[in-house]
Design a protein around this nucleic acid. Sequence first.
DNA 1: AATGGTTCCTGGACGC
DNA 2: TGCGTCCAGGAACCAT
Length: 296
Amino acid sequence: MPELPEVEVVRRGLADHVVGRRFLSVQVHGARVARRHIAGPVDLVARLTGLGVHEASRRGKYLWLRLDGDQALVVHLGMSGQMLVEPPDAPREKHAHAIFDLDDGLQLRFVDQRTFGGLQLVDLVPDEVGATLEDAPRLVPSVITHIAPDPLEAAFEQEAVVRAMRRRRTQIKRALLDQSLVSGIGNIYADEALWRAKLHGERATDRLPLATLRGVLDEAAAVMTAALGHGGTSFDALYVNVNGASGYFERSLEAYGREGRPCRRCGTLIVRESFMNRSSFSCPHCQPRPRYRGLD
DNA sequence: AATGGTTCCTGGACGC
DNA sequence: TGCGTCCAGGAACCAT
């Protein structure tokens, strides 16, 4: 599933192969891919046609292309989204929901099997957070102003996040997955960060020492940086592939997906638990479940 | 107001 | 072999 490192790999691919190009024509297949675009798919196609692409940006799991007129094409990959750059005669993928003809003769295609992803065209606005007198606020799409900075961007303020976590009445894994608190972390990297920090995901945030909260955020940043180091080298010139990027790092995972296999720190078998209607993987020895029930 | 549960969707894995 | 069922999960949305 594309989390921050996989989305960053896609962003880099777009920066290399799409920035500097122009959309000569655009096709959108089906209404669902444009469901977040309030004015609808016909409007999306009409407004994108002819626009030039100036920059590929990312915050957390959101991608956007800055286009003419400080407009942004916001892209979310959902669970299965891919951005592919291919020759026009390449067979059309079954789930190619949007196709952009570029002015270099190639096509950019948005392919998404499970259709949780989507596209929308919105205005760029100054960011609410991270701006100082020295640094002008960065421009972000109007529809993602509620998404917090991610741990790998300059605007990320760890102390503010840690204090916000302490004020919350929630569990640490919920907090790590809350994109309005810290963005970019999904189920896989949440489990990896918690394993590294030796914390059970149900620990209450308001009972954890500040240093412990800093620690788990450091581990989240470290594991995502490591994953990026692997994924960043795995795509070729014409094929910007999310799945190819995440597949390589899979071998390095310590907790996620390792149910019944020994913890690589202590040898205890990794367990799987249902949490938030998701699977959570952890080491019962290194990451003991809190004695309190829930948050009480 | 803050928090947690529900829902959208497809296809691969699995059981019989 | 085929059919039904379960599962994966990001985040908007809704209920409390």
